[in-house]
């Protein structure tokens, strides 16, 4: 009897906790959650978009340099928050940061729930396999193990399309490549920007056998209704594209600036 009372009390506590909504307030005069600061969330561990330098603590990458420049031009201090990808949008909902700039592909479902900027870099999902693999495209992965990063558009693609493969999802994209290297999975489905980076010095070992015809350009994600901040950021982005800053950063991380040309 005592135990039942205990369990019931525990459940009540649980429900009571969930009933307490978050109530962080936004300073109305400021564009951002904290005046003078631009809080940006990224899952750092996604080269060449956002990753740590060789020292393991300095965030670098295309997104990182882009956001640094955005914050600088807006006269704000950049506060980069490293967040797990799984849950990154939930943090936006609960006012943990102003925006997510972490290689977010623009998709209809994300646009439905969030405010997304115009694209700032081109991207599509690609299927990567070992050079000697018999997989020739997304049609021939039936019965094979395909690694994806959890809750990414690659993961969505496999869930939404009947490819017949076994989906293996990981927290970090690096684990997908580890698994491919160890031969535990047969293919990796990932963003072309990332695939190109990993293929960089592994061209002899891996090849891309399929690229989704549906492009998934990358944009910045804001809370729904936060148009003021979105517009301010878009303006700065336009400037950065007009004066060649974006192309310069792209060339630094992608080797060329093709990914950002003509995207805006």
């Amino acid at each position: 009897m005592k135990k039942i009372v205990c369990i019931v009390l525990a459940l009540i506590l649980l429900l009571a906790l969930t009933a307490c909504g978050s109530s962080s307030k936004k300073d109305d005069a400021s564009l951002t959650l904290t005046a003078g600061k631009l809080a940006v969330s990224a899952e750092i561990g996604y080269p060449p978009m956002e990753y740590f330098d060789a020292d393991g603590s300095t965030p670098i990458g295309f997104d990182v340099e882009m956001m640094t420049e955005i914050a600088k031009r807006m006269g704000l201090e950049l506060d980069l928050i490293d967040t797990a990808w799984d849950g990154i949008f939930a943090g936006l909902d609960s006012n943990k940061y102003d925006m997510v700039m972490s290689s977010c592909s623009i998709t209809p479902s994300r646009q439905e729930n969030y405010l997304m900027s115009k694209p700032y870099v081109q991207n599509a999902i690609e299927l990567l396999v070992p050079v000697d693999s018999d997989i020739t495209g997304i049609d021939s992965v039936s019965g094979k193990k395909v690694a994806v990063q959890g809750e990414t558009t690659s993961h969505d693609y496999l869930r939404d399309n009947d490819t017949g493969c076994e989906i293996m999802d990981y927290d970090k994209v690096i684990n997908c490549f580890d698994e491919l290297k160890l031969g535990r999975v047969d293919a990796v489905l990932t963003d072309s920007v990332v695939a190109a980076y990993y293929l960089g010095d592994e061209l002899d070992n891996y090849k891309v056998v399929w690229v989704n015809s549906e492009a998934e350009p990358i944009g910045i994600t804001f809370r729904k209704g936060n148009t003021a901040l979105c517009e301010a950021v878009e303006k700065v982005l336009d400037e950065m594209f007009a004066d060649g800053t974006a192309a310069k950063i792209a060339a630094k991380y992608f080797g060329d600036s093709a990914g950002v040309e003509g995207i805006r």
Binding site: D86, A90, G150, R159
Partner: peptide
């Protein structure tokens, strides 16, 4: 749980 959380978009 985490997968359902993200695919159903509800905690």
């Amino acid at each position: 749980t985490r997968s359902i959380n993200s695919s159903a978009a509800t905690p």
